[in-house]
């Protein structure tokens, strides 16, 4: 099941070739596989994101490999050189085989 994801570009208005910061958050429990359910006493099975890929104009620019030691609802932030008008796609994959995709448009002005 795809999860809810959010991508934001800072600052909101930017020129061609400017460095912009990409902030993104995905709603994901990131279960470590070590915690126990307090009511039933059973171990909650591991379920965490282990692969995030960033594509800009169809080209893979960044690969991020998180593990269990990343907080729930993982927030990631990195820079991007906005030198062309192209879509930016982020793909999240977790160990249970779930894939979430989110595409935004990079539109430099001026």
């Amino acid at each position: 099941m795809p999860k809810t994801a959010l991508i934001k570009v800072r600052p909101r208005r930017y020129k061609k070739g400017q460095l912009v910061r990409i902030d993104s958050v995905i709603m994901h429990p990131m279960n470590t596989g070590l915690q126990k359910n307090k009511k039933t006493g059973k171990i909650i099975p591991a379920d965490y994101i282990n692969d995030i890929e960033v594509f800009y104009d169809g080209e893979k620019i960044t690969t991020i490999k998180p593990t269990q030691s990343v907080s729930a609802n993982p927030y990631i932030s990195f820079y991007l050189k906005a030198d062309k008008e192209a879509p930016l796609k982020i793909v999240w994959k977790d160990i249970t085989g779930d894939t979430t995709e989110k595409v935004i448009k990079i539109k430099p002005k001026g």
């Binding site: 460095l19 620019i61 960044t62 991020i64 927030y75 932030s77 990195f78 820079y79």
Partner: peptide, 15 residues
């Protein structure tokens, strides 16, 4: 995090 020159700046932030 594996970066490429398109990133423009070696920076990463998470929780």
């Amino acid at each position: 995090v594996y970066l490429s020159p398109q990133n423009g700046k070696p920076y990463f932030s998470t929780r």
